[in-house]
C-alpha cells in the first residue's frame, strides 16, 4: 500500500524538529553538524503552523489528482511509482514559474533560497527503512508514515478526503 506522512494533530508540540530534520536531510552533508560547518543553507519542506492553541505541521499530501502536476508548465512536476509527487528526478527541469505554488491548496510548495526552483516534499529523505526524516525526527509521534488504512482505518481517510475536498475545491 502507498504510504503517506500522516499527521496526528493532537500530538504536535510545535518543536519544529521535523522542519530541521527535513532541511538537514536535504543538505549535502546529510547531518546537522556537517551542514552547519559547511555553511549550507538547506530548506525545509514541512512547515509547522499554529491555529489558536493547536500546533501542527503541514507538508505535501501527494494529492491523487495533484493540481501542481496540472499547473506545471515545464512538465517537471510528476508522480513517481510510489505515489510521490515531485519536481525533481523526472525528465524535465523546474523553471521556477510558481504555477505549482499558485495552485497548491496547502501552501507547501515554496521557492528555494535563490528563487531558482520550487521546493516541496520530495521524500528524498527516507532512511534505509524507507522512513522520511520528519517522521523520524518527531519526538511525539505526531508524524506517522503509514498506509492510510494501516493508520487508523476509515475515519481518518474520510477526514483527509473531506478536508482535501473542502480546502481545494473539486480538483
Amino acid at each position: 500500500m502507498q504510504k503517506e506522512v500522516l499527521i496526528n494533530f493532537d500530538r504536535c508540540l510545535g518543536c519544529r524538529s521535523c522542519q530541521l530534520a527535513c532541511a538537514v536531510a536535504h543538505s549535502t552533508a546529510g547531518n546537522l553538524f556537517g551542514a552547519i560547518l559547511n555553511g549550507e543553507k538547506p530548506r525545509t519542506r514541512i512547515f509547522v503552523h499554529q491555529v489558536g492553541g493547536q500546533k501542527a505541521p503541514l507538508n505535501c499530501r501527494h494529492c491523487e489528482d495533484a493540481p501542481c502536476i496540472d499547473a506545471c508548465i515545464a512538465g517537471a512536476m510528476h508522480r513517481q511509482e510510489d505515489g510521490t509527487v515531485t519536481n525533481v528526478g523526472g525528465e524535465q527541469q523546474c523553471t521556477a514559474c510558481w504555477m505549482c505554488v499558485m495552485v497548491c491548496p496547502y501552501g507547501v510548495i515554496r521557492s528555494d533560497a535563490a528563487g531558482t526552483m520550487a521546493l516541496k516534499c520530495d521524500r528524498e529523505c527516507r532512511d534505509e527503512a524507507g522512513v522520511p526524516a520528519c517522521v523520524r525526527a518527531c519526538p511525539t509521534g505526531a508524524l506517522v508514515y503509514a498506509g492510510v488504512d494501516e493508520y487508523s482505518g476509515r475515519r481518518r481517510v474520510d477526514v483527509l478526503a473531506r478536508a482535501l475536498q473542502q480546502v481545494s475545491g473539486n480538483f
Partner: peptide
Amino acid sequence: CGFGELGLCCRNCNMGPCRIDPFGD
C-alpha cells in the same frame, strides 16, 4: 532536538521559548 544540539533555543523569558533556524530559513 537539533535546536538544542546547536544551542539555538532560549527559555530565558516568557515571551519565549524561542528558537533560531540555523539555516537562515
